[in-house]
C-alpha cells in the first residue's frame, strides 16, 4: 500500500511519481494519468517487442507482462518491469547492445 495516498499497489517509480510539491510528474488527475500510462505502455512495448514480449495494464493498477508462449508475470510497480522482462525472456534487455540499438534505430526510420 502506498504510504502517501493509501492506494493498494500504488506505484511511486521516479517516472511515475506521486504528485507532491516540487516534484515533476504527470500524475495530476485521472485523465493525465491515463494518457501517460498509455504512452508508457507504448514506449515499453516498443522495446519489449524486440524479444516478443507485451505489457498490458490490468484493472488500472497492475501490469501484466506476457510472452508469445503464454507465460505471464503480474507486478504492481514499474521498477519491476525490466527484471521481470529479462526473467520472462530468459535474456537481457541491454540498451547498450549493438543489436538492440540498431533495432531501435530501424524502428525510428
Amino acid at each position: 500500500m502506498c504510504s502517501l495516498c493509501g492506494i493498494l499497489g500504488c506505484d511511486d517509480h521516479w517516472t511515475n511519481a506521486v504528485e507532491r510539491p516540487g516534484i515533476y510528474t504527470r500524475n495530476h488527475d485521472s485523465q493525465s494519468r491515463r494518457v501517460e500510462t498509455s504512452r508508457r505502455l507504448n514506449a515499453a512495448n516498443t522495446v519489449l517487442s524486440y524479444r516478443r514480449l507485451k505489457l498490458d495494464l490490468w484493472q488500472g493498477r497492475s501490469y501484466v507482462l506476457s510472452s508469445p508462449t503464454g507465460a505471464s508475470s503480474v507486478f504492481e510497480a514499474l521498477s519491476h518491469l525490466w527484471p521481470e522482462a529479462e526473467t520472462l525472456a530468459g535474456r537481457d534487455f541491454d540498451p547498450l547492445d549493438e543489436n538492440l540499438i540498431s533495432w531501435m534505430e530501424d524502428q525510428r526510420s
Binding site: R39, V47, D94
Partner: peptide, 16 residues
C-alpha cells in the same frame, strides 16, 4: 520525450 527518456534511463540503470 519524457516517457521514452524514462524508459531508456530505467533500462540503462537496470542493466548497468
Amino acid at each position: 520525450d519524457w516517457t521514452m527518456f524514462g524508459t531508456w534511463l530505467t533500462l540503462l540503470l537496470n542493466r548497468y
